[in-house]
């Protein structure tokens, strides 16, 4: 619970972040890498890009593009395996958006029986920036998410006159370690629960009645099967397992995959259960808005709009779902 608040000037915010890095914390935040904004470790505050929505969501903090599962070495008739250890101890992720937190919330449900990933999800300290404005293609509010508030974070930063109002919970208090005299009880306007979201969710579930609709052909027509939507999505979890190496040594990797790609479901026999973009696009939309309602108890789209911005064919997943339902 965000129970305390403090006011920081621009300078104070910068000093705080630089101070964390100085104290040996690993600080991850939105930066530009090869011209693309994504979450990556920073060495000083000025690297942060806090006025954009990142192209890649923050999920890669927990689920990197690729991760080493273990390394192996072969010697005569013996194989040695060493597990790769990585944790998010001492990690602070700054610059999350409310949609990123909703994404992590979904990942906690999806990976509920995976202790490794769950531990990562619950270890890092989250510092969220409320969105003052909508970014291009965002529709989080359509799905009942408040762009200006998140209770799924340790620290929430809202811009105010002459700087920032910073709200924090007990974990946030530890990393902020503010002067006691500056701290006030949090006075934050929590969003009124949006009653219409239940109706929206129920309406989206009706997509299952349209499984055989001819309209899927229309909405999938532009899809190139490039997988960009899945790669930037905060809740897409699909992955591939691949080996790298030679006959002596190497590593087994887990790496991002995308259900939009033709090879994703293709059997070794050549048979493909989802043979064209029609079935693949349908699966994606059904998975986000229908299937996870049954498997995880909620829709798994957080309305961040990243997939819409990333799509070379400008497909809009939400509008397409509504188009099918019309």
């Amino acid at each position: 619970m965000l129970n305390k608040q403090i006011h920081y000037s621009n300078q104070q915010l910068q000093s705080w972040v630089d101070g964390l890095i100085y104290k040996g914390k690993t600080v991850i935040g939105p930066v530009k890498k090869n011209g693309v904004t994504c979450f990556s470790e920073i060495k000083n505050f000025n690297e942060l890009i806090l006025n954009e929505r990142t192209v890649y969501s923050a999920k890669e903090v927990v689920l990197p593009k690729y991760d080493i599962l273990f390394k192996f070495a072969k010697e005569k008739d013996k194989v040695f395996i060493s597990k790769n250890e990585n944790s998010l101890n001492n990690v602070i992720v700054i610059g999350l958006r409310p949609c990123d937190n909703e994404g992590f919330d979904y990942l906690r449900l999806f990976f509920k029986s995976d202790p490794d990933i769950l531990q990562k999800l619950n270890t890092f300290i989250s510092v969220t920036i409320a969105c003052e404005k909508k970014f291009d293609g965002c529709f989080c509010e359509e799905l009942g998410i408040d762009k200006n508030y998140s209770n799924k974070t340790d620290v929430l930063i809202k811009t105010s006159e002459n700087g920032y109002d910073i709200y924090f919970n007990d974990r946030g208090n530890e990393i902020l370690s503010p002067q006691a005299s500056d701290v006030k009880p949090a006075e934050i306007k929590k969003p009124v629960p949006n009653v219409s979201i239940d109706n929206k969710v129920a309406y989206l579930k009706k997509l299952s009645e349209q499984y055989n609709s001819e309209k899927w052909k229309i909405v999938s027509m532009g899809c190139l099967g490039c997988g960009s939507c899945a790669f930037v999505c905060p809740t897409c979890t699909c992955f591939d397992v691949q080996d790298e190496g030679n006959t002596q040594n190497g590593q087994r990797l887990i790496c991002w995959d995308a259900c939009g790609m033709g090879l994703f479901t293709k059997h070794a026999s050549g048979h493909n259960p989802r043979p064209s973009q029609v079935e693949r696009r349908r699966h994606r939309i059904m998975h986000k808005f229908v299937y996870t309602q049954d498997t995880e108890g909620k829709i798994s789209c957080v309305g961040c709009g990243r997939c819409i911005a990333a799509c070379p064919a400008h497909l809009n997943i939400y509008n397409q779902a509504l188009q099918i339902l019309q």
């Binding site: 999806f110 990976f111 995976d114 979890t237 699909c238 992955f239 591939d240 397992v241 995959d257 259900c259 994703f264 479901t265 259960p273 699966h283 059904m286 998975h287 229908v290 299937y291 996870t292 049954d294 498997t295």
Partner: peptide
């Protein structure tokens, strides 16, 4: 039940 490849519907 994680990688998503084998999904048939949900």
């Amino acid at each position: 039940g994680q990688c998503g490849h084998c999904m048939v519907g949900k």
